[in-house]
C-alpha cells in the first residue's frame, strides 16, 4: 500500500503560531459529535460562507506548533466532513499530530510553508519525493518524511485499520 498524494487548494491559512485548534469551532461547541453540525461551524465565525467555498481535497495551512493547547477531535471532524484532505504546517504540537494521524487524517510538516503559499493556491504533497509543489506559483519545498509508524497509520486509514494490519502481519509470521 502506498500513500496517495494530496492535491488541492489552500482553503485557509492559520497565521497564528501555537494555534489551538479548538478555536476552529469554538470551545463551547467542543462536545458536539455530529459531523454535519461541526462542518457548518468550522471557521464560520471568521467567514460565514467558508463551508460553501471549500471543495473536496482542499488543504489547510498552519504556522509553528500547530495544535498547541488541549487539542480535541471535533474541529477536524468538521473539516474532514467539508472534504479537507489534510493540514500542512511549519511544525505541529505532538499531541495534536498523534491524535489526527490516529484518525487517518494526513498532516504534513513543511518548514517554510507560511511564506510559500497564498490562499487558494493549488498545491500537491508528493510523499514519495517528500516534496510540496505549489502548482500555482511553480515552486517546490521539501516536507519532513513521515516515521514508519505514522506512514503505516495513514495508509491504513487510522488506528483501527492499522491495528488490523498488525494482526495480519503477526498472524503471517
Amino acid at each position: 500500500m502506498s500513500l496517495q498524494n494530496l492535491r488541492g487548494r489552500i482553503a485557509w491559512i492559520f497565521e497564528e503560531e501555537d494555534f489551538d485548534v479548538d478555536q476552529i469551532v469554538g470551545v463551547k461547541n467542543i462536545k458536539i459529535k455530529d459531523p454535519d453540525e461541526l462542518a457548518r461551524l468550522a471557521l464560520a465565525h471568521e467567514e460565514p460562507d467558508f463551508a460553501q467555498k471549500v471543495k473536496p481535497g482542499d488543504l489547510l495551512v498552519g504556522n509553528h506548533n500547530f495544535g498547541y493547547g488541549h487539542p480535541h477531535y471535533p474541529p477536524m471532524i468538521g473539516m474532514r466532513k467539508l472534504g479537507i484532505g489534510g493540514v500542512i504546517a511549519e511544525s505541529f504540537a505532538p499531541g495534536y499530530w498523534r491524535g489526527e494521524i490516529a484518525n487517518g487524517f494526513p498532516q504534513v510538516a513543511c518548514p517554510g510553508i507560511m511564506g510559500a503559499v497564498n490562499r487558494w493556491d493549488e498545491v500537491e504533497v508528493d510523499w514519495t519525493t517528500a516534496t510540496l509543489r505549489n502548482l500555482t506559483q511553480g515552486t517546490d519545498l521539501p516536507i519532513e518524511p513521515l516515521s514508519d509508524g505514522d506512514r503505516l497509520m495513514l495508509e491504513a486509514g487510522g488506528i483501527v485499520g492499522y491495528l488490523h494490519a498488525r494482526e495480519e502481519e503477526e498472524a503471517s509470521t
Binding site: 499531541g95 498523534r98 491524535g99 490516529a102 484518525n103 487510522g158 488506528i159 483501527v160 491495528l163 498488525r166
Partner: peptide, 13 residues
C-alpha cells in the same frame, strides 16, 4: 505518556 487515540492499541495489544 499521553498517547491520545493510540490508547486503543494498549487495550487491544
Amino acid at each position: 505518556i499521553g498517547v491520545r487515540r493510540h490508547l486503543l492499541e494498549a487495550f487491544v495489544k
